[in-house]
């Protein structure tokens, strides 16, 4: 029973991980860039929802659109002001460039908001839970999972059913061919960053309902997103979804298993170590991931 509970909790968390990984995988798919600042985008999404709800006295869930908008703008601004120039350089410069962005946003947040851990105290769903037989689900997590799923589906639909989405996927498949077809790759890159920033902004808005927000919260999530993206295959949207859920389950399940067999090494302190370790094993054994098509 405790295992089943862990699996359900893991799936709920995993859906949110999937939404975080979505933006990372789209950006990678379209332009072969790993966005280290992705976790900081998440953090900014969290802070946006936090301050909107606090200052306007509304529920954090209602503040969600502001998180999405801020995230989108942040993505677009990052692309036009930084990433566009990084593309000319070697890979190491691209990595450092987005790493610089990560540090900048992190310490900007620290400068503006300090290093305190903050959490939403009041809200429609905060502190309430749903009992389903023996399982107790926090409404905040449940709604976050449902809305993540919704956002994920929406983006999936956008990419697969609309003209714009097809153009984006064509760019990801073959930049040159796409530009011959009259697709402006520059715009597509910006679009990828807009979607990436927007989705992770939403994820931040959802996360702040039940997770402390502080300037360095991003690193943990970006590493989880890296692991998800690697597991799913860099650039694969479907992969990001399933991998996010799987990583969510691993993260919840292993401490429980560890507790059952009485081992400290599977304990809660190590649950993220497991994620890093999982990444390492995944990329070494199956570098293309579950659904990979690039490299």
């Amino acid at each position: 029973m405790i295992i089943l509970d862990a699996i359900i909790q893991g799936i709920l968390m995993g859906l949110l991980f999937a939404l975080v990984a979505l933006g990372l995988t789209i950006i990678f798919g379209v332009m072969d860039i790993v966005n280290f600042a992705h976790g900081e985008f998440l953090m900014i999404g969290m802070f946006t929802a936090y301050w909107t709800s606090l200052l306007l006295h509304v529920d954090p869930l209602i503040a969600l659109p502001t998180s999405a908008i801020v995230g989108t703008l942040l993505g677009v601004a990052s692309y036009y002001w930084l990433v566009k120039y990084l593309l000319r350089g070697p890979m190491i410069a691209q990595l450092f460039g987005t790493f610089g962005l990560m540090l900048f946003l992190r310490y900007l947040a620290q400068f503006l908001f300090g290093t305190d851990y903050r959490i939403v105290q009041k809200g429609l769903l905060v502190g309430k839970s749903l009992s389903l037989g023996p399982f107790i689900l926090d409404w905040t997590k449940l709604s976050a999972a449902i809305l993540s799923l919704f956002a994920f589906t929406l983006v999936y639909y956008l990419l697969h059913r609309t003209k714009l989405g097809r153009a984006l996927r064509a760019t990801a498949l073959n930049k040159e061919a796409a530009s011959y077809m009259g697709i402006k790759t520059d715009r597509m890159n910006a679009l990828a960053w807009a979607i990436g920033g927007g989705t992770v902004g939403i994820a931040g808005g959802l996360l702040v309902n039940f997770w402390y927000v502080y300037p360095t919260v991003g690193l943990l999530f970006v590493m989880i997103a890296f692991a998800s993206v690697a597991l799913g295959g860099f650039g694969s949207i479907k992969g990001a979804f399933f991998a996010g859920v799987i990583i969510g389950m691993i993260e919840m399940l292993f401490p429980v298993l560890g507790h059952l067999i009485g081992s400290d090494f599977l304990g809660p302190h190590f649950k993220f170590t497991l994620v890093y370790f999982a990444y390492f094993i995944i990329v070494v054994l199956r570098p293309q991931g579950l659904f990979g098509w690039k490299h």
Binding site: G100, L101, L103, F104, Y107
Partner: peptide
């Protein structure tokens, strides 16, 4: 750190 980070970005770009 922000100044430091800004420099990283400028050099990389």
């Amino acid at each position: 750190f922000m100044i430091y980070a800004a420099m990283i970005m400028v050099v990389s770009a």
